[in-house]
Design a protein around this nucleic acid. Structure first.
Lengths: 239, 239
DNA sequence: CTCCTTGTGTCAACGGTGTTGACGTAACCT
DNA sequence: AGGTTACGTCAACACCGTTGACACAAGGAG
């Protein structure tokens, strides 16, 4: 494990900044989280972070190699938050769905962070725990090792992909978001039946497009996995 | 869609730049496309774009209000490109998979653009054509109107979600991307079996995580839809 | 208690970024 | 031929991430 923090996490010399705050990696992540939540991802800069902390911006580099490193720490914190209170129910498929949904919700709870946090392999403790849990559910359902990894990967990436998408919508200015939702009615609702026969036929149902598809996506994925497991079991029994 | 170009597209005065190139909105989009393709999304800056065009960077602002505006124009071009040459094969499920894959690929061809272009409803002819085609395939498969819309929505959003995710990966600097791929081996490959039993068991297969899951996601979604259609047909036949 | 090491906050600077306003010139219209 | 003005250019602004030198106080050693 390559150390991502600049120093081995144990600090002895604790010198307060000029404004009296005693810095720490956790405190910096706190401040970054708050900054992004309140001001938007666009407002996240090392300089503003320094100002929010009451410290010189460059002090951050005593704790993180660079901004990327800091954002990875932020991402792992989100992963940890998302899994608090999760306990397997016994139904592996339902648990997997829940796992994906939690990843989605936590990513979406901070739309500004989701845009970049969903991308990276943090390789940090919280992420490792989640992966172990998810893969374990699939192994328990009887899938072989490679298939378990692949299915876990599909499930999580689909959940995070929808999060990235929906986070982008949330990031739009409210007025623009409303306009985009209207667009499904305005631009699609009255198309000529001869040129767009299918669209015309389903025109009443187009507003469904405005909502997130993540739950239905997870439903379908889990259904397919269930079917696969059932088929495999049947084949083994008949063998 | 609101007009994104600064002037009504019709140019009369065509003055060459100091290097002899005659600028146009199309030419600028061309250059931006080429720049991103060859140098990576990281290399896309207004200044480099100006250099590539053989013009002062600020000349771009005669054609586009800002960089976002330029990137939206680029996105418009992508939608058109993505569907050229698509023809239904007769297998509705395979066609839907292909539709999703095309959306994914075109979004991913320009990662920088995908990050936000996947979010908006353009409501333009190209988009309308695609939606009509996709919904039509599902109606043809026997799904009712609401289900057809929902399933189409799931499929496209999943494809675009994966595109947004994978685009983020591509946006990383090459060295960092390689490091991320290694991370699955380095940080996950040698975890203790007692604390992470499932991870330990599948450790050989973890590099699978580095690849995109989009094809398998589409496979599973389409499989679930096929199953649903088959179940419905069986129910109708038995009724 | 004093001294020394060194961790860590601060400062200034570098090279980059997007964007804007003033300016002049050359391309078109009359 | 002359006047308008579109548009390319230039210089400047206000930011950005990051780094190296520096100062100083916290903590250990004696």
């Amino acid at each position: 494990m390559t150390e991502s923090e600049r120093v081995p996490a144990e600090r002895k010399r604790r010198r307060p900044t000029s404004s009296g705050v005693v810095l720490s990696a956790d405190l910096i992540v706190d401040a970054a989280c708050e900054l992004i939540d309140s001001q938007g991802a666009q407002a996240f800069t090392v300089r503003k972070l320094g100002a929010a902390l009451g410290a010189d911006p460059s002090a951050v580099y005593r704790y993180f190699r660079n901004t990327e490193d800091l954002l990875l720490a932020l991402a792992d914190r989100l992963i940890g938050e998302s899994m608090t209170g999760f306990g397997p129910s016994g139904d592996w498929a339902a648990d997997l769905r829940e796992l994906g949904l939690r990843a989605y919700r936590s990513a979406l709870r901070h739309p500004q962070i989701a845009a970049f946090s969903t991308v990276r392999v943090t390789g940090r403790p919280h992420e490792q725990r989640v992966v172990d849990t998810g893969v374990g559910l699939l192994l328990g359902a009887g899938f072989d090792e490679a298939t378990a990894v692949r299915h876990y990967h599909v499930l999580v990436d689909t959940a995070l992909g929808h999060a990235a998408l929906d986070a982008g919508v949330l990031r739009l200015a409210p007025a623009q978001r409303a306009a985009d939702e209207q667009a499904w009615q305005d631009r699609y609702g009255s198309l000529p039946a001869d040129a767009y026969p299918s669209l015309h036929r389903v025109r009443e149902h187009l507003p469904l497009m405005a909502a997130s598809a993540v739950e239905r996506a997870l439903d379908l994925l889990v259904a397919a996995m269930r079917q696969e497991a059932a088929d495999r079991e049947a084949a083994e029994r008949g063998r």
